[in-house]
Structures are given as structure tokens and as C-alpha cells.
Simulated scan of single mutants.
Amino acid sequence: MVDERVRLWDGVAVALVTLFADDGSVDVAGTAAHARRVVGEGVRAVLVAGSTGEADALTDGERVALVAAVREACPDVPVVAGASGAWAGPAAELVAASVAVGADAVLVAPPRRPGDLGAFFARVGAAADGRPVLAYHFPAVAGGAVPVEVLGSLPVAGLKDSSGDAERLVRVLTEWDGAVYVGSSVLTLTAGALGAAGAMLAVANVVPEDCLAAWAGDAGAQLRLGGPHVAAKSGFPHGLKRLMAQRFGTSVAARMG
């Protein structure tokens, strides 16, 4: 059994996009190749089928296929599978399927109507077969909230917080001893300076070098992330995919937006 407090990595991970063909089908090979590209630039881990990956538009089978392909393409870094569900049952099923194909950890948002959060994450954790479970706080986009007050009672190894709330980040870091990852690129430098475990960033799909530099304390790099950050948030996912197409020639096709 893996200790639930194990930190799989420190530093910047990419919140991976999902690439699609013009007919709307998932480009599994292309997505995995892009993951390998940004890992080659120095990102420390890959989050597959999260919010940035248009998870709401993917079937469970597509999500599992992406995890398997990225695991094969990126054998030397942790692969985290987005595995949220509308309630504990489907979330646990997706968690189990994801770890079966090689996910090193899972990222799970609580349902919008979670009931007992401890019981929800206990069931998810049982399905994870010893892999660390990271709670996901991004109630504006994915599932329900993960209140700071209950973090200490949850059977989770870490938290991804994509709220962009600096005050909440300080509270989490001072009130809880789990691994804290930010999901908002505007807090990259701040999170690194305050001792967070890392960041899982959408903009690492297009400017991984600036993400890494900002994490290391480069204020200029943090400021340069402003443009991609705004583009990634504006008309999601099209703004981010246009930037990727300009730099890497990848497809702009999307299912959402």
C-alpha cells in the first residue's frame, strides 16, 4: 500500500490538452506525442483528461485510452489521470480503470452534491489500489468545492487548487500538510516561493519553459505567462489550442466551446 502522503513529483506538470481529428475523434497518438514533447522540455509530470483535456466531452473509454498512451509515451515521469465522476460509483470505476493502465495517481473532484466528503474519497481511494489520490478544487468548472476546513480529515495525498485564490493558497499551505499544487498559472511563482509542491498548468502545453522559469522564481517569466493565461481562459479551449497550433502545428479541433 502506497503511503497516501507520498509526493510523486515537485515542480511543474502539464495539464494536458486532448487533441482531436477534424472529424471529432480523439487523436490518442497525437495527444501522447504532445505529452512527450513537453516532457522533453522539462515538465515533471503529466495530468491526462483533466479540465484542460476537455474531460467532460470524453467517454470513460477515451479517457482510459489516453492515459495508457501517455503512460507509454512518457515512461520516466508520473502520469496523473483525471477521474472525477458525478457520484462515488462512477468515479471509483474510472479510478480503477485508470490505474489498471498505468496511472501513477488520480485527480478527483468531489461531486457538486458530495454529501460525506470523507466517505466519497475513501471509496475513491479504495479503487485507486494504493496510488495517491489528489483532490481537485475548481468548483467554477469541475464538481464541488474542497473546503480548507475539511482537508485534514480527507484520505487524500494532495490537492490541486485551480481557483487562482492567493488567500486560499496561503491558508491551505499553513493549515494542511499534504502536497499542494496550483492550477492557475498566475500563481506559479507565488506557489513556488511559498513552498507548494508544484503546479499543474494548462499553459505548460504551449510555453513550458516560462512555466518552469516562473516556478523557479523568474518574475519576467511569470509576467510572460499572462498572455497565454488569458488566451487559455478566453473561449476555452479554443484560445489555448490556437496558441499551440501557432507554435507546434497541432490541431485546433475541439469538442467543447
Rank of each mutant, 00 (worst) to 15 (best):
A13R: 05
A29Q: 01
D23E: 06
K160Y: 05
V150T: 14
T31R: 04
G42H: 14
L151W: 02
S51K: 01
L212W: 15
E62R: 09
P111Y: 09
Q246L: 09
P110A: 15
G40Y: 01
P90E: 00
W215R: 15
G249C: 11
A126D: 12
R242D: 00
A105H: 12
G226V: 06
W9D: 06
R168N: 04
G125L: 00
A91E: 02
A245M: 12
T59M: 09
G183D: 14
G239Q: 00
G82F: 14
D10H: 09
G178N: 01
D218S: 06
V148M: 03
G220A: 10
A122C: 07
E54A: 03
L189M: 10
G249Q: 11
L151Q: 08
S185H: 02
R242N: 03
G40S: 02
D104M: 10
R44N: 04
G40F: 01
V46R: 06
L169H: 03
V64W: 06
V148S: 04
V146Q: 05
T52E: 00
A88H: 13
A127T: 12
T31A: 04
S251Q: 08
G152W: 06
N205M: 02
M200Y: 01
V2E: 02
D60E: 06
R5G: 01
V38M: 12
A15L: 02
A32S: 13
A49E: 00
A97D: 12
V170I: 08
A45K: 07
H238S: 01
D23N: 15
A253S: 09
E62W: 15
A166P: 11
S84T: 15
A157M: 14
G50A: 09
V182T: 08
R168S: 05
L201V: 11
